[in-house]
Design a binder for these strands. Sequence first.
DNA 1: CGAGCAATTGACCGGCGTCAATGGGCGTGG
DNA 2: CCACGCCCATTGACGCCGGTCAATTGCTCG
Lengths: 246, 246
Amino acid sequence: MPQSSRHPFLRKIDSIALFRPTDEERAGLLTLPMQMVDFDAYQDIVREGDRPRRSFALLEGIACTYKSTRAGKRQVMSYHVPGDVPDFQSIYLEVLDVSIATVSPCRIGFVQHDAARALLRAHPRLNEVFWRATLIDAAMVREWMLNTGRRDAYARMAHLFCELVTRLGAVGLAPDRTCELPMTQPELADALGITPVHVNRTIRDLKAAGLITLRSRRLTVHDWDGLMSVAEFDPTYLHLRDRDAP
Amino acid sequence: MPQSSRHPFLRKIDSIALFRPTDEERAGLLTLPMQMVDFDAYQDIVREGDRPRRSFALLEGIACTYKSTRAGKRQVMSYHVPGDVPDFQSIYLEVLDVSIATVSPCRIGFVQHDAARALLRAHPRLNEVFWRATLIDAAMVREWMLNTGRRDAYARMAHLFCELVTRLGAVGLAPDRTCELPMTQPELADALGITPVHVNRTIRDLKAAGLITLRSRRLTVHDWDGLMSVAEFDPTYLHLRDRDAP
DNA sequence: CGAGCAATTGACCGGCGTCAATGGGCGTGG
DNA sequence: CCACGCCCATTGACGCCGGTCAATTGCTCG
């Protein structure tokens, strides 16, 4: 909320950097040419196998990174909230190993790799912040991996909700631990590695336990401590600066 | 094989960089102070929650990155082969979100973060290579995530074997698609998100299908195409340079 | 040579998948 | 403004993959 009117990169830096950018660094970021594009929901922004020459920041909406098996089964590896730069990895990995799609209607800001590389070379601390951002993305996938591999569906879903509320809260989108979740149950199934039917049963159980309500794409957490406890949720892996507890 | 006598960082760069290092870059790498330490098998090198002031290269042996739930269930997120720099992320993330342990006896080379940061600032291209290395690590975890979330135990194990043979082959440790795999079945279970008992049944099935043999820690792939097919293995995500097909 | 853990296998169980049917929300077109 | 269609949401019945428990047989190492 406090910084919602700022440039997305400044907001990102504010949320994860260990320093305040100098005027010069700010100027470099603000003058980075960015091409705005609006996407409908459920559109691929980039696809596995692409060789993009630009990266993008997510300015509004929710997106997800996913991979598919040949049989067409999808696995969502992470969700993205406004301020994220989901495919920054493509700046140094030529071939994308994932697809990134919108979940809700999104506003995207594209930045050419060349321009970004030049900026990062000119400003070592910015280089470090963006590197750090890609490392945090990786840490989130690792936490999901633990989730998928070693927790049952109930704890897994609780964990996902904890993460989403925390991250959306960090950008002012989850006041009172209530937020809009545009994803459908089949999509949640793709994120959790279970079937849509079982997503439904699990949500029913979380509701019955009095932990949450979820109706018409709106999630409210009623018992945050209880939900965290079920999920064994510890937000350290998000590497958020302290002020952003939801 | 060809470069096994070289400095581990040069070997790493040779395997993933898109350029040849200049003499100056090589000199910088070679003069980076590195403290060698030998570890027994099954030792933690670093632990979740640590705030290390140094990173390390794996010079010999096999290591793994893992996380644990409070209930003590382990999930191995990736294995590391000689030449890898498994915790390079710690250079820009203060708190480690994973533990890294040896699987076999290992030789480790520690490098102080300060020295590494100075080197990376002095040599932008080296900065990019090491960033790239952390991005490749992340891509491997994502592939494991797809594996764990969306493939059954049989395909999952086939995929793990494909990856290990490919990566070990890339550093000359899997001639004729045969390699030493120091991990026990309970450890494989931790990597695959299944139980040790089921690991055993799955290996039995892979053997029965004529795809592999695995005895006293030695894996041989008899039907590489068959194994790749079962696993839907596509090595693109490893971002290896082409020469290293096993 | 005995202790201790890995490897292996059988019997049984349960969480989650599969299949199927019904209801609900919403957009589109008549 | 309503009707239709489509997909999401929800629930029950049933089946199976993989978990649990337990026993036996190796290895490996002190």
